[in-house]
Amino acid sequence: MTNYEETMELVSLNDNSRKKYYWKNHLFYIFIYLMAAITILVLVAIIGYILINGIGHINWEFLTSEPRSMGREGGIFSIIIGTLYLTVVAIAVSAPIGVLAAVYFAEYAKESKWVKTIRFGTEVLAGIPSIIFGLFGFTFFVIFLGFRWSILSGGLTLSMMILPTLIRATEEALKTVPQSYREGSLSLGATKWQTIIKVILPSCLSGILTGLILGIGRAVGETAAVMLTAGSALGLPESLMDPARTMSVHLYILASEGLSKEKTFATASLLIILVLLINTIASKVVQRFINKAKA
């Protein structure tokens, strides 16, 4: 039915079609509001359910003692350390590469076919699912390069996974630096590289930081790729070549083997709190960045 016909029917004050017309309108809004409400409720339900069941079991002892009998008892100290090491390795490798790559894309790259190709490659990397990274990390780092199941293998695999996030965030940040900064610096006789290091990068530091924080969030939450590359050993890792178990891998193993309800919920709560904290910090930094850019 066309708009015109509908309107004419309304004009002719046909009671039935008028009712239909209003009902359609109401139903539409009811549907939209309902779906939005459900989405918020789902989030509250997931976070609420896990925190209510788990937060009571998080205490000093849980955080600082070693897991005993496969994680059934004790705490998750070595797992926190493992998570930390792995994240640090991932960030240490990917941060310089990611930031410098973004500098190339934003400041040096010209619109050529070649640049388009490497841009496209970066997008493709972002779309690869984590299990494929896991398979790759296993055959390349663990077997081919002989790094075994280790923090090094896991960290390098993670660094590949978060690289696109870092590049994208940094490039967005670089784009917000006003052109006049570059012109000012160049006209004072600075070279392009001096301009980038001394003027451009410092003025968009918080944007870069956001990318880093989001990368950390992704590294902490990642499971499949880490399991296949860093292993799932419970001991306290002592060097880069030791295997390690991260919090999300620990949660998976506890959940799938049904070892201890209490410890599973506690680990899940800790993971959620950590990730929420990381995301909140990231969005706070973004907000500050936007405010600064406006001013």
């Binding site: 790559a101 040096y108 970066t122 990397l125 494929i132 790759f136 392009k192 590289w193």
Partner: peptide, 30 residues
């Protein structure tokens, strides 16, 4: 010196694409 830096940045920029190629090669090889 500026030229060298540009080349270095370019290497960083192609890392992601090289990773994709490496992943493809190793997954298919196995």
């Amino acid at each position: 010196y500026e030229k060298v830096i540009e080349k270095l940045l370019l290497i960083c920029a192609v890392t992601a694409t090289l990773s994709v190629i490496l992943i493809t090669i190793f997954i298919f090889k196995e």
